[in-house]
Computed example of a mutant assay.
Amino acid sequence: MNIREQTEKIEQTILSPLATLACRTAGRQYPEEEDDLRTAFQRDRDRIIHCKSFRRLKHKTQVFLSPEGDHYRTRLTHTLEVAQIARTIARCLRLNEDLTEAISLAHDLGHTPFGHAGEHALNEICSVSPMEDGSSGFRHYEQSVRIVERLEKNGHGLNLTAEVRDGILCHTCGAQAKTPEGRIVRVADRIAYINHDIEDSERAGILREDQLPESVTAVLGHSKRERIDRLVRSVVRCSTDGVMRMEPEIQKAFDDLHAFMYASVYVNPHAKSEEKKIPLVIEKLYEYAQVSEHLPEDMRRIAKEDGVRRAAVDYIAGMTDPYAVELFERVYVPHAWQHR
């Protein structure tokens, strides 16, 4: 046996009967020869880490718009925290860590610049002006799948396994993922962002720890460490059948915490004051990008094959915050005349 086959044999021996085994993957979009070192899910994880879309996450907003300071989360650091929490749960439940990590690392690849404000703005545009294939609206989880299937590697995609693509698509809402590993990522994503958003909000002066509802802290604890620990332990205790859940008391406190964060931070007029500018920026960039000559070479190919509106959306969704601002200023803000 080669190293991959040995690893697959170990998976069959030590993982739960509910685990998704790499040797039983439903396969890739396009058949490939197996690697002699890495399982299918390990290869997926590696491809995601090395792709351009993953690197761009370091300059995309998580909650606070392009924050000044080294310790605020970006979309990349959020992704890494999701992966850590998800892997812990997968390990405790004896599920496939490699599959869980691959889904975690790719789940937000399709997020727009400027966080959910950018996503909402692009969704409005795409709802009014459907794309050439008849689809309308914009959802970052669908864009994440499009990136790994179509846009990465100069239009060839990453050719990931069906299990990873399903987990990406189902990580946020709608139907649950087909695998327990995909279902782990869905709950780990929520555990991660609620807790790190509290920490970032404290750093930003938006709220204090002692302002969290007492009914929540009495159940989940008074620190990020305590909350994450109790939430993860609850998921592990209650999810041995592969369906991710928590004890009712824990789940209620978690839902109440989410509602509190929504009212106190996610729609806080002080925290979100700059976001009212985002729809104009996205709208003007969309107008600009609908001229094929304005698109980079890889997006011009998408425009020819999938339509210029589709390419414009792909182009904007892939931008980082700084690049979107720089392009907007270069195209729409007058520059001082310079004598040459």
Rank of each mutant, 00 (worst) to 15 (best):
P67H: 01
R94N: 10
Y72S: 05
R55E: 10
L80F: 04
D98T: 05
L57M: 15
H71K: 07
E81A: 04
G69R: 09
Q62Y: 15
F64P: 08
E68T: 14
Y72R: 03
H71V: 08
R91Q: 15
R55V: 03
K58P: 02
V63R: 10
T88K: 12
H71W: 05
R75E: 13
T74I: 05
V82L: 09
T74R: 05
L76W: 13
D98P: 04
F54G: 01
R91Y: 12
L65Q: 05
D98V: 01
H78C: 04
T88G: 00
K52P: 00
T79M: 01
H78N: 11
V82H: 06
R55W: 01
H78P: 09
I49M: 05
T61G: 10
F54K: 03
L57K: 02
G69D: 12
H50T: 02
E97L: 06
V63G: 00
I85S: 04
L57I: 08
C92T: 11
R87V: 13
F54V: 03
I89Y: 02
S53I: 02
L65A: 04
G69Y: 03
R91T: 15
L95P: 07
L57R: 04
Q62W: 11
K52C: 05
L99F: 11
F64S: 06
L95Y: 12
I89N: 02
R75D: 07
A90E: 13
L65G: 00
I89V: 15
D98I: 02
R73S: 08
C51V: 09
I89G: 04
I89L: 07
T79A: 09
T88A: 07
T74K: 00
F54P: 00
C92S: 15
K58V: 14
H78L: 06
D98K: 03
S53D: 11
R73G: 01
K52N: 12
L57C: 09
C92R: 15
K60A: 06
H59C: 06
L65N: 10
D70Q: 10
I85C: 05
I89H: 07
S66W: 01
C51Y: 06
F64N: 08
H71E: 14
C92K: 15
S66L: 08
F54W: 15
V82A: 02
Q84R: 15
K52Q: 13
L65H: 04
E81H: 09
T88L: 06
H59L: 15
L76N: 00
I85Q: 11
R94T: 07
L76C: 02
R75G: 07
L80S: 00
R73V: 01
V63S: 08
P67L: 01
